[in-house]
Nucleic acid binder design. Structure first.
Ligand code: FES
Ligand code: FES
Lengths: 161, 161
DNA sequence: CCAATAAAAGACATAAAAGTCTTTTATTGG
DNA sequence: CCAATAAAAGACTTTTATGTCTTTTATTGG
C-alpha cells in the first residue's frame, strides 16, 4: 500500500463515536468549570478552550446554549466568566447530553427503527436495551462536581498533549 | 410555548445515536439478505430497500462498499442480486461496524481525547471502557445468520409501518 | 460617567454525512 | 449474438454538524 493509501486507511478509522463533538466539548468544559468553581473562580472561554483542548469560538457557543438552559451560570464584563452554582455542580452528565442532544441516545432503537418498541422489537432489541440502560446509568451516576479531586491529583485528564 | 416552539422542541430530540445511519441501514440490509440467502434466494436493491425501509440508492452504495470488502456477495444481471455465502452469514455485527466506521467505537475515548489511555485516562475512562466493551461483545456475539428464525416467526422486525 | 472586558447574539464558512441520479459493466435467457 | 436486467462506478445535491468571525450587550473598576 502506498503512503497516501496508508493515510487514507488511518483516516478511515476516525469516525463514529457515542457522543457528538458538541457533547464531548460540553462535558469536558463543564467538568473544568466545576473544578474552578469549587475554588470560587470564574473562568473565561479562552481559558476553558485551552484547558480542554477545544475550539474557542465553538465552546463559546455551546456554553451559551447550556447557560440559557440553566446548566451553567455566567457573568459578563471584567471578572466575569462561567461558573457553577452549588445546585448546578450536582448536575449529571446525562443532564448535559439531554440538554444538547435530547433523549434519543437513551430511548432510540439501535437499528434506527422509528421508535424502540417492546411489542415490535428489532432483532437486537434486548441486548441493545441493556447497553443503552448501562450508558444512561453511567451518565446519570456521574455528577459534574465529583471529578475535581482526581483532576487536582493528576489522576485523570481533560486533554492530552 | 407556541406551536412552532413546540415543533422545535420535538425536533431537538431527533439526534445522537450510537450508530450512524449508514451502519443502521447496513445491519438491517445484511440481516434481510441473510434471511433470504438461507432459502437460496438472491435479492435486489429495490426489495432490500422496501423490506428494511431504507433509501434505495443509498443502500445500494452501502452494499456496494460491503461487497468490495467481501462481507456480502453479489451478482449482476437477470437473476442477480445480493446474497451471502455460508462463511459470510457467520459474520458478526461488529464486523459490519468495523468495515464501515472502523474501530473508533470500540477503542476511542468517551470524552474525545486524542486516544483512550490507561496511563492518562479521562475522568470517565473506567466506566466508559466497560460500556464500550459491552457494546463490542453485544455486536461480536450477534451473527448475521442467527436472526432469521425470529424474523420468520414475526417475533422481531426490520421495519415499522 | 467611561473605557475595558467578557459573554450573548447572530451571521457566516467549512466539512462530513446522507441521499440522489446517470452512466457503465457484467450476466442471463432467448 | 442480443435485449433485458441488475449491480458497480462515479458525479452530484442536500442536509447536518462543526467551526469561525463580527457586532451587541452587560458589568466592572477607576
Ligand atoms: S426496537 Fe430496536 S432497540 Fe428496541
Ligand atoms: S481515556 Fe477516555 S475513555 Fe479511556
Amino acid at each position: 500500500m502506498s503512503f497516501i493509501g496508508f493515510l487514507f486507511f488511518i483516516f478511515a478509522f476516525v469516525k463514529e463515536m457515542i457522543f457528538s463533538k458538541t457533547v464531548e466539548y460540553a462535558i469536558r468544559a463543564m467538568i473544568f468549570i466545576a473544578q474552578k468553581s469549587k475554588k470560587g473562580i470564574k473562568v473565561g472561554i479562552k481559558e476553558i478552550a485551552k484547558a480542554t483542548d477545544a475550539p474557542e469560538y465553538f465552546i463559546g457557543k455551546i456554553l451559551q446554549d447550556l447557560s440559557r438552559k440553566g446548566l451553567v451560570q455566567s457573568l459578563k464584563g471584567p471578572t466575569g466568566g462561567f461558573y457553577l452554582e452549588e445546585e448546578s455542580s450536582n448536575c449529571s452528565l446525562a443532564d448535559i447530553v439531554k440538554a444538547i442532544d435530547g433523549n434519543k441516545l437513551f430511548t432510540g432503537c439501535g437499528l434506527g427503527l422509528k421508535s424502540c418498541s417492546e411489542i415490535k422489537p428489532c432483532p437486537i432489541h434486548n441486548e441493545f436495551k441493556k447497553v443503552r440502560e448501562d450508558i444512561y446509568n453511567m451518565l446519570e451516576d456521574a455528577r459534574i462536581g465529583e471529578f475535581s479531586k482526581k483532576l487536582e491529583k493528576k489522576l485523570t485528564f481533560l486533554r492530552r498533549k
